[in-house]
C-alpha cells in the first residue's frame, strides 16, 4: 500500500493547472479512486496536479434555467446543497448513495465522472437529467452532453490535457417526480444496478420519462425503449412493469463475482419498476 514516488503541485489558478496538465500531469481531485490505485501500484503517475484547492472549480450555483456544479464540489456538497436539493433533487438523492461518509466528504463530482467507473452512481442520474459537462483545455472549452461524455468503461470524451470544469444540470420543472434506486454491492458499496428516474405527468398521462442506468453494462445509458413505452400512459402497475422489462433490452450485461449477468438484468427490471413507482408517487 505504498505508492511510487510522484511530483505534486497544487496550482493557484486554473490556467496554471491546465498548463501542467498539457505537459502530461495527471489531475487529482478527491482521490477516492486514484489514490487507492496508486497505493496498490496499479497506477503510477509521475506528476499529480491537485485541483481541489482551486476556488474557481468549487461552486454550486443556479444560473438561468440550470444548476452549475463546479468539478470539485464534493458528493457531500451536492447531497446537502439547498440549490441542488431544490432544483434538481435527483442528483442530491443520488449523491447520498455514493460510497460512505468519508468518501462523500472527499470525493468530487468531477473526479467521479472523469473516472467513469461503470458502476458509479452519478452517471445514472446525469443520464436521466440530460446533464452537460463542460470540458476545459489550455486553449479551448467545449460542452458535451453526458450521453456523449460517457464513452466506455473508464473512458470518457476527455482529451489529454482537458479537465472537467463543471457539470450543468437543467432546473427540474415543478411536478417532476424523481427517484434513484440502487442495489449496492455489499463489499464496496458500488452499484450492482442503479436506476435513476424522472417522470412528469400532464393531464393524467406520463408526458416525460427519463431512465438512467448504471452498473449494468460497460457504461451508463438511458433506457430509451422503456422511456418511450411510458409516454402517454397513466402509469398503472402493468404499464410500469412492461416499461421496466425493457430497461436492459439489447444491453450486453456485465457479470462479476457479485452478480451474474442474468441476475443483474433481472435486478435492473425490478429496480426500474421500483424507481418508476417511487418517482411517480413523488410527481404531481
Amino acid at each position: 500500500m505504498i505508492p511510487q514516488a510522484f511530483d505534486y503541485t497544487a496550482p493557484k489558478s486554473l490556467d496554471e493547472a491546465l498548463g501542467l496538465l498539457a505537459k502530461g500531469a495527471k489531475p487529482l481531485a478527491g482521490g477516492m479512486s486514484l489514490i487507492p490505485m496508486m497505493k496498490l501500484r496499479l497506477a503510477a503517475p509521475d506528476h499529480l496536479v491537485d485541483l481541489r484547492r482551486l476556488k474557481d472549480l468549487n461552486y454550486i450555483r443556479e444560473q438561468g434555467a440550470a444548476v452549475h456544479i463546479g468539478a470539485t464540489a464534493t458528493h457531500y456538497d451536492v447531497e446537502n446543497s439547498a440549490v441542488v436539493r431544490g432544483k434538481c433533487p435527483l442528483l442530491a438523492e443520488t449523491a447520498a448513495h455514493i460510497g460512505d461518509v468519508q468518501v462523500r466528504n472527499m470525493g468530487t463530482i468531477g473526479g467521479s465522472i472523469a473516472h467513469n467507473d461503470p458502476s458509479a452512481d452519478y452517471p445514472a442520474a446525469l443520464q436521466a437529467l440530460e446533464a452537460k459537462v463542460v470540458l476545459k483545455g489550455a486553449k479551448s472549452e467545449r460542452t458535451v452532453s453526458v450521453a456523449d461524455f460517457f464513452v466506455d468503461t473508464f473512458t470518457t470524451a476527455l482529451e489529454p490535457g482537458e479537465i472537467i470544469r463543471e457539470v450543468i444540470v437543467p432546473v427540474e420543472d415543478s411536478g417532476t417526480g424523481t427517484s434513484y434506486q440502487k442495489v449496492a454491492q455489499p463489499a464496496s458499496g458500488f452499484a450492482i444496478v442503479g436506476i435513476a428516474v424522472r417522470v412528469r405527468k400532464s393531464g393524467g398521462k406520463i408526458g416525460m420519462a427519463r431512465i438512467g442506468v448504471t452498473g449494468l453494462a460497460n457504461r451508463s445509458y438511458r433506457a430509451a425503449a422503456a422511456e418511450k413505452a411510458l409516454e402517454g400512459k397513466a402509469g398503472s402497475a402493468t404499464e410500469i412493469q412492461n416499461a421496466a422489462s425493457l430497461v436492459a433490452e439489447r444491453v450486453d450485461v456485465n457479470s462479476d463475482l457479485h452478480a451474474s449477468a442474468d441476475y443483474r438484468r433481472h435486478l435492473a427490471v425490478v429496480y426500474a419498476a421500483r424507481a418508476l413507482m417511487a418517482a411517480l408517487a413523488r410527481s404531481a
Binding site: 454491492q185 455489499p186 463489499a187 464496496s188 463475482l257
Partner: peptide, 26 residues
C-alpha cells in the same frame, strides 16, 4: 451467514483480495 466468503479461483488466485470484494458487515 450473509456476506463473507474468501473466493479462490481454479488457479489459486484469491479473487476477494481486498475489502472492495470481501464483504465484512458495516
Amino acid at each position: 451467514a450473509l456476506w463473507e466468503q474468501a473466493v479462490y479461483d481454479d488457479n489459486g488466485q484469491l479473487v476477494t483480495g481486498e475489502l472492495m470484494d470481501y464483504a465484512v458487515p458495516k
